[in-house]
Amino acid sequence: MTTFILLLISNIFMTIAWYWHLKGGMEKPILVVILISWAIALVEYCFAVPANRVGYASGWTPGQLKITQEAIALVVFGVFMVTVLGEPLHWRHLAAFACIMGGVGFLFIGR
């Protein structure tokens, strides 16, 4: 559970770092956007690195860690896309998410 929570927090910060400037920040110079994004990403790394260490020490494989991170990233981005960027959620988003969840399932089968 610790690994999942740390990955969730890290993905929230990374989503913000990558996409915050798309809504209301487009007038900022790209160098400013990059520096702000790097500062946010530093916080993300402070959660992602421990998440991977804790998960690996708990018996997760690197593949399980990565596919879990990707699934969490899609959920976090979906929420961000709808709530912050105002983009609608379509069936294609749900279908793509289901495919990623299938990948998660394959890596955890038999563990």
Results as ranks from 00 to 15, higher is better:
61 T>Y: 03
99 C>S: 12
97 F>I: 08
78 G>D: 09
86 G>A: 05
59 G>D: 06
17 A>M: 06
82 V>T: 15
25 G>E: 02
74 L>Y: 11
57 A>C: 05
109 I>T: 15
95 A>K: 06
78 G>S: 04
16 I>P: 02
106 F>R: 14
61 T>I: 02
72 I>K: 03
28 K>D: 05
84 V>S: 07
65 L>Y: 02
49 V>Q: 08
107 L>S: 15
61 T>W: 02
61 T>P: 01
31 L>G: 04
104 V>M: 09
5 I>T: 09
31 L>V: 07
45 Y>Q: 08
8 L>D: 03
25 G>M: 01
7 L>D: 02
46 C>G: 10
7 L>R: 01
44 E>C: 13
23 K>L: 03
51 A>G: 01
84 V>A: 09
64 Q>Y: 00
9 I>S: 01
88 P>Q: 13
99 C>P: 09
86 G>E: 04
110 G>F: 08
90 H>R: 15
47 F>N: 03
19 Y>H: 12
37 S>D: 01
52 N>T: 06
44 E>W: 05
22 L>E: 14
67 I>Q: 00
2 T>F: 08
32 V>P: 05
12 I>C: 09
97 F>R: 11
91 W>H: 12
64 Q>R: 00
43 V>L: 02
3 T>R: 05
102 G>P: 09
33 V>Y: 01
5 I>W: 07
40 I>D: 05
11 N>K: 00
45 Y>N: 09
90 H>E: 15
